[in-house]
Write a protein that binds this DNA or RNA. Sequence first.
DNA 1: TCCATCCGGGG
DNA 2: GTGTACGGATGGA
Length: 816
Amino acid sequence: MQEIKFFVLDGTYKIVYGKPEIILFAKTSDNKQIIVKDRNFEPYFYVIPRENAELQEKLERLRVEEENENYFVTRTEKIKKNFIGKEISCIKVYTNIPAAVANLREIIKLWDNVESVNEADIPFIRRYLIDKNIIPLMWYSGKGDFSNEESRVPVFELKTAEKTDEEELQGLKVLAFDIETYSPFDMQIDMEKNPIIMLAFYANDFKKVFVWKKFQTNLAAVEFVENEQELIEKFKQTILEYKPDILAGYFSDGFDLPYIKTRADKHKIKLDIGWDSSEIRSKSGRENTMSINGITHLDIFKFIKKTMGPTMDTDSFDLSSVANEMLGEEKHDVSLNELTHAWDNDNEKLETFAAYNLHDSYLTYNLSMKMMQTIIQIVRISCIPMYDVNRMGFSQLVEGYIMNQAPNFNEIAANKPSNDNLAKRRLNSFEGAFVFEPKPGLYKDIVVFDFRSLYPSILTSHNVGPDTLNCDCCVKQNTPDNENWFCTKKKGFIPFLVENLIKTRSKIKEQVKKDTLAGNPVNTALDAQSTTLKLLANSFYGYLGFYAARWYSVESAKSITAWGRVYIQKVIERALKEGFIVLYSDTDSVFLALGNKQREEAKKFAADINKELPGVMELEFENFYPSGIFVSAKMGSYGAKKKYALISEQGNLKIRGFETVRRNWSLIAKEVQEKVLDIILREHDKDKALNYVKSTVKDIRSKKVPNELVVIKTQLQKELLDYAARGPHVAVAQRMMNMGRKIGPGTMIKYIVTQGSDIIRNRAKLPEEVKAGEYDATYYIDNQVIPSVERIFNVLGYNKEDLLETKEQTKLGGFF
DNA sequence: TCCATCCGGGG
DNA sequence: GTGTACGGATGGA
């Protein structure tokens, strides 16, 4: 018997001689990749019988024989468990293989004297990690023996594993990558047709750009190869030699890896870089996902958007905006349109693009490292491997955490809802948060406060959860809406978990505070742990109201918002009484304008409120904004929910709800909107903004605007014949097909609306059919540019006609 | 007001 | 793989 120290990155299983074998992809303390196998774990699930029914014998006889596989029960145990607030007796049923669980549960749940079948839908590897308490990315000391099995990495057969005290993970190797592809101007991305022309890698100790055309360069990272085929071989080889634990990309689930895979298939290259020599493959699911056995494929775009997105200032998640906000850096400013031209005609220009390519992978690497501690902490708390954490939503993370904790409380997990139930739950809407509608306008000196821990603190202090709801022992309405009650005698399972999260977090915060006072460097792991605990605690409310949740409870969610409305309204009342101008409030945040007051007074206001709030509840100072604009979503006089733009003291624009200008809008409309917000908030010059719009309108009229700015893009979602409504993009697609072009679902249709008096779809033409200046100026002014800024100008006291007037506006002064 | 349709990120 | 999936806005009816 030998002893090794290791941590697990991910895992899977396979059947060997009719028995399941757990396979863990792990790393040892001397920084070696290792496969850890465990042959001693049995699949099982629970059966809850109806009133005293005797089921064990019948269960033990159960056996299904199919052509290639037999599914049967190996043994059963009677066991006491807790289930939604009650102690019950149930049967633990063991089966021969994992697949038998899914197979047999379908039969058993139809039996008359079966109340329900539980925990029969948990992936085997997750079951193993939870039951053996093997948390990914934590150190374990394992006993067992190395096997002489043939494999790319050594195989260790595990007998026992024990957690060690160490927390720090040294030597987690992250390698970022990025590709550039050949893409003629104005053509859709076509993985089948267009080759990859550059490939960059970046790690702290490794920088490389592979290119298959030669040019003069001083860039040390550049390495020339002969052709695309060799470039893909280099992709494989680099990964096999560098041996990263994490391969990071930006939108690489949706672009880089599917692209590389498509091209590799074309060249008949096998991308067999998994530790077990398996190939890169896409996992089933709606959205593209790419995975490699042993190597964690991190799509940092997905993680940032899902997990950090809601609290970030930026409204757009392209690499440049995200890098700007998180790292204070941007992409290189080069025009990608010229890349293909340079590739075909002007190789000496390629150096700029190679540098651009490398820089993108550098940004991807740094974003990954910036997020790494947070990701590690989420993995550890939810006991879910990084690959899945990367791709999961919040509710799944919460559920992961609850599932992980359930055995410690002897709780049986509730089942996921059936399809019928799901449909019913989706209809269950309830009164949400309180929203104070903003009055459209331009404001200065805005302070934003929010109640970050509003919902979790309500949840714990009022003992809210499915197992305390309308209990038998209390029977007295105690929610603000007087519809339900929550037990006041016994702490519920969910509130207990949330309270633990909050308590653990405040301990960590204390520690961080102590360290800071002592002048010690900030411990980033502790910091990330605190963020994660907060994130998780804040997600419970949403989870309870999420239709697909196991521990779903609308009554709980509904009562939490009811209490929430009570608290936020108290804050608003008080702010008004003290003479602040309340601009806007939604759920747990309040936007106040200082008016004649000082910033200090606002801080004191929050401090006073905090003195009166119970327990962990806290009104936090979010930020100060010198100016901001709230815009009406409708033409009426009501303010819009979530449609505003603010500028911080550092000069960062925080734009919310203006994302309507997306790819099915022309570039000219996007440009004008951005520029107008920028001029108004940064320069405080509404005349300049107005004149800018007017001069753009003039340019459009006099046909000075290049065609590329008036192209409208829409993607075909289905086969052409399946369209009932013939919009302009459908009409253009039809003509493309008649011209013999291959189109289908996913094809990007680009068109320009040209002059004429016919209906729009007959005037929509392919960009290459349109000569400069043939676009319909009126259409672009009335349907694109004006609508994108009209509401902004309404706020400033102008109407559509003012924007179209030809004469220049003179300075009026008096801005706010 | 409701139902169907599209976007996002990447080149 | 004991699975499995968004959320929001728009615009036409």
